[in-house]
Simulated scan of single mutants.
Amino acid sequence: MSKTKPFPAIHGGCFCGSTRYRLECAPLFCHACHCQDCNKHTGSVFACFTTIEAEFISSIGKTPPKITRVARPNGISRHLASCGTCGTRLWASGDITPVTADINTGTLDLPEIMEPDVHEYIESKISWVLLPEGAKTCKGPFDYREYWPKSSLKRLEAAVQRAQERRKLLAKVAQAGQETEEEKEADKTPTAQTPDEKDGVVEDDEEFEKRYLETEKALQERLEQLSLRLNENEKVQGDDLRPGVVQPAKEPETAAEGQAPAATGPEN
């Protein structure tokens, strides 16, 4: 009994070769679009896409693809992967759901094996572009639910389910991280403090007693200095006892011993 052979990985890359990628499984669907938007977007007469689950694209080049968000004329935004060196557009998030990606078929190393399953917007096709005999076509955009094979629809459903599970897991991780930060902040929250507790620091009994004794000692030293200065002076200027404003009293003028004070009279 033979085993099923694994899908041969298909490679692709940009014009300059610095950005390379690999498809890890068979594509979901291939289609060509002949609308005028795709003509302008690609600079060619029609566009060709190979759709695959985005998770099955692996970057294998020396330069990872550059991801940018681009707005389309219809108002839908897509994330575009391109080479940051030469600017080659490689793939973009799918129109159906972000879990898929539309590879630009021309960037594959073997684009001939990805023949379009359907050509959409056939009414806009350039007249001299000839389609293969028997090619499926449709006017306007095709409905993937009608054109995709059942196996691809099941794969799409599974990819959407995996994406939802990843989002739930990320939400749980983010919530757990937020709760951890809140717990850390709660541990840092100070308890209620009295007006004497400054800067959110609560002194224990030993620290309070030490600070009290140092303050009392400093006040006692200032009081002793003030008393000494008061004793050295017989008079104090005014009633201001603040340090630095005490001035020495003037010595009283007295007469010499055994002599009467000289009489003063009008000048001659």
Score class of each variant (00 low, 15 high):
residue 3 K to W: 03
residue 5 K to P: 09
residue 10 I to F: 03
residue 11 H to G: 05
residue 12 G to V: 11
residue 12 G to M: 11
residue 12 G to W: 13
residue 21 Y to W: 08
residue 29 F to E: 01
residue 33 C to T: 03
residue 35 C to P: 01
residue 35 C to H: 04
residue 36 Q to E: 13
residue 38 C to V: 05
residue 39 N to A: 08
residue 40 K to S: 03
residue 42 T to P: 10
residue 43 G to K: 07
residue 46 F to I: 07
residue 49 F to W: 15
residue 53 E to W: 04
residue 54 A to R: 11
residue 56 F to T: 08
residue 57 I to F: 09
residue 61 G to T: 00
residue 62 K to T: 14
residue 76 I to W: 08
residue 81 A to W: 13
residue 89 R to S: 10
residue 91 W to P: 01
residue 93 S to T: 15
residue 94 G to P: 02
residue 101 A to H: 13
residue 106 G to C: 13
residue 106 G to H: 07
residue 108 L to K: 05
residue 109 D to N: 15
residue 110 L to V: 12
residue 118 V to K: 05
residue 119 H to I: 04
residue 120 E to A: 11
residue 123 E to G: 13
residue 126 I to T: 14
residue 135 A to I: 02
residue 138 C to T: 15
residue 138 C to E: 07
residue 141 P to K: 09
residue 146 E to Q: 15
residue 152 S to V: 06
residue 152 S to D: 04
residue 153 L to T: 05
residue 156 L to S: 03
residue 160 V to C: 12
residue 163 A to T: 06
residue 164 Q to L: 14
residue 165 E to V: 09
residue 174 A to H: 08
residue 179 E to P: 00
residue 183 E to M: 11
residue 184 K to Y: 06
residue 188 K to L: 15
residue 198 K to P: 01
residue 199 D to F: 11
residue 202 V to C: 05
residue 205 D to K: 04
residue 213 L to H: 10
residue 214 E to N: 02
residue 215 T to P: 00
residue 216 E to I: 08
residue 223 L to Y: 06
residue 224 E to P: 00
residue 227 S to I: 05
residue 231 N to T: 09
residue 237 Q to L: 13
residue 240 D to G: 14
residue 241 L to E: 01
residue 244 G to R: 03
residue 245 V to G: 03
residue 246 V to E: 06
residue 255 A to M: 04
residue 256 A to H: 03
residue 256 A to V: 02
residue 260 A to G: 07
residue 260 A to P: 05
residue 262 A to G: 09
residue 263 A to P: 15
residue 264 T to C: 04
residue 265 G to K: 15
residue 267 E to T: 12
residue 268 N to E: 14
